[in-house]
């Protein structure tokens, strides 16, 4: 059973964007960092165990031409082997900061290229994969940035083609082991999933076709792909082969966020139907097939949930943001 903890007040409300919450756990300092997008700005704050906000910071997207200030599409902490960077995507480009948001170390302007005038140009979908940071774009291309152990010498090392509609989200294997052949999965607006193996050259292992609905959120855990769709379904696939194993009619509205607690294989799904569900993923001891069990369901009344994340690696606590809501709601296991 989960209990509602004290919520954290924000300076501004959360925008109606999918995956609109990022959490960085700092157990050594007994702190948790939260980040979410308000619209033209992103808010970062750190909070102690009691949910008292200690420090707040606002980040803006770099300005450009246009009627209104550029909107931010996502903000996400990327935990790399030697450093943590905060990545912010917008309708202008990609901004990378030191983990506390104090210094911008890298800026990549989006190339609108051959976009038609009606095409919205943006970056969306951020994940760390080894010493790379991968960022999705409006065109379906995934940009791979090679991140040095320190300093601003970040280079665009590769552009991955595989998608033809805007990228929505990128999931990576949090606990990389020897046997994990597939360590990244990318999703797009058409529901297509691409499974990759990272390396100096990324390799497309398999692609899982869509079925007419968007896939706003995707996760990867021990060779299983968990995908959340616009029709409220969660589907679990074998990453290596792309075979569908489990289909859950999980929510009554579009799913807006999935998250994984890597130590225990718990999956969090959050949707516009005001519900958050927790599932337990596992593999059958007999034949290794994927299994799932429903653990918990939580209604966040009158809140169109737009972001949800676990706050610890064993899935004993999670945080939720909602559209128009100027607070982060926290829940923890009793």
């Amino acid at each position: 059973m989960f209990r509602r903890e004290r919520s954290i007040r924000l300076r501004g409300s959360a925008a109606a964007l999918c995956n609109n919450l990022t959490v960085l756990q700092l157990p050594a300092r007994n702190l948790t960092h939260f980040g979410m997008v308000h619209g033209p700005s992103a808010q970062l704050l750190s909070a102690g165990p009691e949910g008292v906000p200690l420090a707040q910071r606002q980040l803006q997207a770099k300005e450009g031409a246009g009627v209104s200030p550029p909107l931010i599409t996502q903000v996400h902490w990327c935990v790399l082997p030697f450093r943590v960077l905060l990545v912010l995507t917008s309708h202008r480009g990609i901004q990378m900061y030191e983990s506390d948001g104090s210094v911008m170390v890298f800026w990549h302007a989006l190339d609108s290229g051959d976009a038609s005038p009606v095409q919205a140009v943006f970056a969306r979908g951020i994940a760390a994969c080894g010493h790379f940071i991968c960022v999705g774009t409006w065109s379906g291309r995934v940009l791979v940035f090679d991140i040095p152990a320190k300093g601003p010498n970040i280079v665009l090392s590769e552009e991955l083609a595989g998608h033809h509609t805007p990228i929505t989200d990128i999931g990576t294997e949090p606990a990389q082991g020897q046997d994990c052949i597939a360590d990244m999965v990318t999703a797009d607006d058409s529901g297509l999933l691409c499974v990759w193996r990272s390396g100096p050259k990324f390799k497309l292992l398999t692609s899982i076709p869509g079925f007419g609905v968007t896939c706003p959120s995707v996760q990867l855990w021990q060779g299983m792909v968990a995908a959340g769709y616009g029709n409220g379904q969660v589907r679990l696939y074998e990453a290596k082969t792309g075979t569908l194993h489990i289909q859950i009619s999980a929510h009554a509205r579009a799913i807006c966020a999935l998250d994984l607690a890597p130590e225990v294989g718990k999956l969090l799904s959050a949707a516009e139907d005001t519900f958050v569900h927790i599932w337990k993923l596992s593999r059958s001891l007999e034949n290794g097939s994927i299994e799932v069990e429903h653990c918990h369901g939580e209604c966040v009344p009158d809140t169109q949930v737009c972001g949800a994340r676990f706050c610890d690696p064993s899935g004993n606590s999670f945080a939720v943001t909602g559209y128009d809501l100027a607070k982060i709601l926290r829940f923890s296991n009793m």
Binding site: V213, N231, G232, I246, I248, A250, A252, T274, F275, C299
Partner: peptide, 19 residues
């Protein structure tokens, strides 16, 4: 935000896991 009534067209009523 209601938690009852019809689901959107093309969405199944939630509550099932198929393997």
């Amino acid at each position: 935000l209601p938690v009852s009534g019809p689901v959107p067209w093309g969405t199944e009523v939630p509550g099932f896991i198929r393997m």
